[in-house]
Amino acid sequence: MKLDQMDILLKQALKPGRYVHSVNTMKEAVRLAGHYGEDVDSAAIAGLLHDCAKNLNDEQTLEYCSNYGINLSRLEQKQVFLMHGAVGAVIAREKYGVENEAVLNAIKYHTTGYGSMSMLDKIILLADFIEPGRKHSEVDNARKLAYIDINRALISAFDSTIRYVMNRKGLIHPSTIEARNNILMLISYGHTDLEFKG
């Protein structure tokens, strides 16, 4: 399926505000991909479809998880909304015909991140955080860093997200901590092949 066909289907599936956010994320992802030498077409698809499961309620999300063998941790059972990335990867494959595993992975982890994120994973997570429609108070620093140092921009994004969740007494996904730790280790020691897992 071509990108314009995906766009038509997505517009029908999402609420107008969520659709606008998806298009904004796609455009930001394309700019970041061009800047960092990543495949622009993959970034466009992942950016457009990253929230393709956001139209589902918790019951529907859990049904997808059950039907497609997605196991939920205790934390994810309490915060089902975190699963829209994993379910979105399923929908991207089944409904939108996406077969590129790198694209599916970027959709799957765009909310939490994980320890050994690829450049495409980083681009989609960051594009989602900094797209022009985002008005949260801590977005400016990540935007300033986004085209200078993507790792430092991601640390800014993770720190902002963690503070937000902590202020609301929410649960922080272990994958987010793992992603943040790994990127901090990369920044500190300059190893591009380092993976830190606690």
Rank of each mutant, 00 (worst) to 15 (best):
K2Q: 11
L3K: 05
L3E: 00
Q5G: 09
D7N: 14
L10C: 04
K11W: 10
K11I: 07
Q12H: 06
A13N: 03
K15N: 09
K15W: 09
P16W: 12
R18K: 10
Y19R: 05
V20L: 15
V20G: 03
S22L: 07
V23P: 01
V23I: 15
N24W: 14
T25P: 01
T25G: 02
M26K: 13
M26S: 08
V30H: 00
R31V: 00
L32P: 00
G34A: 11
H35G: 03
H35R: 12
H35Y: 12
Y36G: 06
G37M: 10
G37W: 12
A44W: 08
I45Q: 03
I45V: 11
A46V: 06
A46I: 05
G47F: 01
L48M: 07
L48T: 03
L49F: 03
L49K: 06
H50D: 00
C52I: 02
K54E: 01
N55I: 02
N55E: 13
L56M: 05
L56D: 01
L56R: 01
N57Q: 12
D58E: 15
E59I: 14
L62M: 15
Y64C: 04
C65P: 13
S66A: 14
N67W: 07
Y68F: 11
G69P: 04
G69K: 08
I70H: 01
N71W: 03
L72R: 03
L72G: 00
E76L: 06
E76M: 11
Q77F: 01
Q77Y: 00
K78M: 15
G85K: 04
A86L: 06
V87P: 04
G88Y: 00
V90Y: 05
A92V: 01
A92D: 06
K95R: 15
K95Y: 13
Y96N: 07
G97K: 13
V98M: 03
V98F: 09
E101V: 12
L104W: 07
A106T: 08
H110R: 10
T111I: 13
T112N: 13
T112F: 04
Y114L: 02
S116R: 14
S118D: 07
L120S: 08
K122N: 09
I123E: 02
I124D: 04
D128L: 06
D128M: 09
I130S: 06
I130T: 05
E131K: 11
P132T: 11
G133W: 13
G133F: 14
R134W: 11
K135P: 03
K135F: 13
H136M: 06
S137Q: 14
E138I: 04
A142R: 00
A142S: 09
K144Y: 08
K144M: 09
A146E: 04
A146T: 02
I148Q: 14
I148N: 14
I148K: 15
D149W: 10
A153L: 09
F158G: 05
D159Y: 02
S160P: 05
S160H: 07
V165S: 07
V165D: 00
M166H: 14
N167E: 15
N167P: 08
N167A: 10
G170R: 10
G170W: 13
L171Q: 08
H173G: 08
P174I: 10
E178F: 05
A179F: 11
R180F: 03
N182I: 02
N182L: 06
I183H: 02
L184R: 05
I187G: 04
S188C: 09
Y189C: 11
G190E: 06
L194D: 10
E195Q: 02
